[in-house]
């Protein structure tokens, strides 16, 4: 059964890396935030699997619980920060003010 959990954890990790691709290419800041949120939820599962493999679940399950709470708070806080942000694409940050006149 341990082998099964190792294989499952590795597959989970590979899929999380695929999701990380979306977090890297964007294109907007909230796309990245969404990918990071999904990765965080899956990290909770991965932490419990790691606890099973180390035969130390009773400690890792507390860490996983705290991680789930923290992940939720991070998502809420960051999306609050980007609320009403008019320029979400990465080209916009900073450059927009300089090119404002030139675009017209």
């Amino acid at each position: 059964m341990d082998n099964f959990f190792i294989v499952g954890g590795v597959v989970l990790l590979v899929l999380m890396l695929l999701t990380l691709y979306r977090a890297i290419i964007g294109p907007t800041a909230i796309d990245r935030l969404m990918a990071v949120n999904v990765i965080g939820t899956k990290t909770t599962v991965l932490l419990i699997i790691i606890g099973m493999l180390f035969n130390w679940v009773d400690m890792f399950v507390d860490i996983a619980l705290a991680y789930a709470l923290l992940n939720f708070i991070v998502t809420i806080a960051t999306s609050r920060y980007f609320q009403h942000h008019k320029n979400l694409s990465p080209i916009g940050f900073g450059i927009r003010h300089r090119k404002e006149g030139a675009r017209k």
Binding site: M34, N37, T75, I76, F82
Partner: peptide, 19 residues
Amino acid sequence: LASPTATHAIISAGFNSGV
């Protein structure tokens, strides 16, 4: 409970920013 709420927060931020 939390995942739909987080989804809601992210998509609302995107909607208000005019995506």
